[in-house]
Amino acid sequence: MKTQIFIALKFLLIMTLLTGLIYPLLMTGVAQLSYPYKANGSLIIKDGKIIGSELIGQKFDSSTYFWSRPSATGYDAIPSGGSNLGPTSKTLKALVSSRRILFAKMNSIDNMTEVPEEMIFASGSGLDPQISPRSAMMQVERIVKARHLDNNMKNILLKKINDLTEDPQLSFLGEPRINVLLLNLELDKIDGNLTNNK
């Protein structure tokens, strides 16, 4: 029994070193060498400043930008999380109904049932970086008006939406989607520099 105690202590120490130190350090080394951009958070740097991560959604609610999804944390990443409201929640029902009305009104959609699902429901992480390409298309007219884009610019924008749309991976995994931050960055480029200009 006594030898077992000593073995247990030594074994725990060795496992701690092996799986708790050597393994993560080794993996960090490999990751930093082979995928430095991704391993460090896919950060987007513009004019020397970090403006976010490709993978972490940002809050977009201004009429001049493509909107991101509703988020239970308001896109605060510390900590991440969803609303955890259940299917018969009064609060959720009210939220969904007001989001639906707002999205329809802002984007001149007549039929309420056409408002895309992901634009009225909050994501699980609160940081969903993407929306469906359909949701992006629905917002184009609003943005064109708000930014007074001419026809040429509008066509470039439509082409960008098409370019940035990610099809299901390997053509069948997951859903078609478009990264809102990347799209809005392109939008700013098309329209000269409108950053921070609400």
Partner: peptide, 23 residues
């Protein structure tokens, strides 16, 4: 795209101008 680093959390200034801490 999963992260694997020992860097500090990063402070970003979003396109709409607010601050976001990225863990």
């Amino acid at each position: 795209g999963a992260v694997q680093t020992f860097s500090h959390y990063v402070k970003a200034t979003t396109l709409q101008g607010s601050e976001q801490v990225i863990p």
